[in-house]
Amino acid sequence: MATADAPLCFRTRRLTKIYGDGATAVHALRGVDLDLPEGEMIVLLGPSGSGKSTLLNILGGLDHATSGEFLFRGQDMSEAKQSALTRYRRRHVGFVFQFYNLMPSLTARENVALVTEIAEDPMTPEEALALVGLEARLDHFPAQLSGGEQQRVAIARAVAKRPEVLLCDEPTGALDSATGVRVLEALQTVNDQLNSTTLIITHNSGVADMAHRVVTFSDGRIGEVRQNAERTPPRELAW
């Protein structure tokens, strides 16, 4: 689906992020230049503290860069205000976290509806949950679902608004391998069917084989960007 000459979803230049100042300053990003085409599935690899989460947070509009340029579909987001960032997240971005972050007081269907109610052209909650294989668990509360099921509800919630971008921070970090594979399959289905640019942070280098593109981080910089000629289906990944 994705091709190298597709329009750019994200473009960053000399992107830096420094937490704190003076002697205690932590350089989380030290000048990141990255071009990510629309519709690709990209896996970000790297040890803890290498800057991948920081980048994801900036790309997702959760945080501001200290300096540098960040464009979303050609639009400069570097100086966007809080309200603009909220709008950006609301319209264009879907998030999936390691710990699901579902609303415990809402059922699977209602957790998805939470987002579809404020989106412009959403799918129905039932469609979104079917996409991740949870059509049978619509009216279950998070407490009644397994970890993998909860994560798939989180994916359904993230994709129900048909986002241009899907950002996943360690989506399988809290799951066993069999469950993890089901979650990755769900992510791949979404990427294939909705053409959402999908960024996945993981510690598990095996996951990289399912991506179009793999970006490796170390010490706040990009070490390597490689494209997979062949993508491995999640079921066949080395876990």
Binding site: S83, T86, R89
Partner: peptide, 16 residues
């Protein structure tokens, strides 16, 4: 706090 922060991530405004 976590629930409410998650909502902010999902694009809910401060008012919401």
């Amino acid at each position: 706090e976590r629930e409410l922060a998650s909502l902010r991530v999902l694009g809910f405004t401060r008012g919401e």
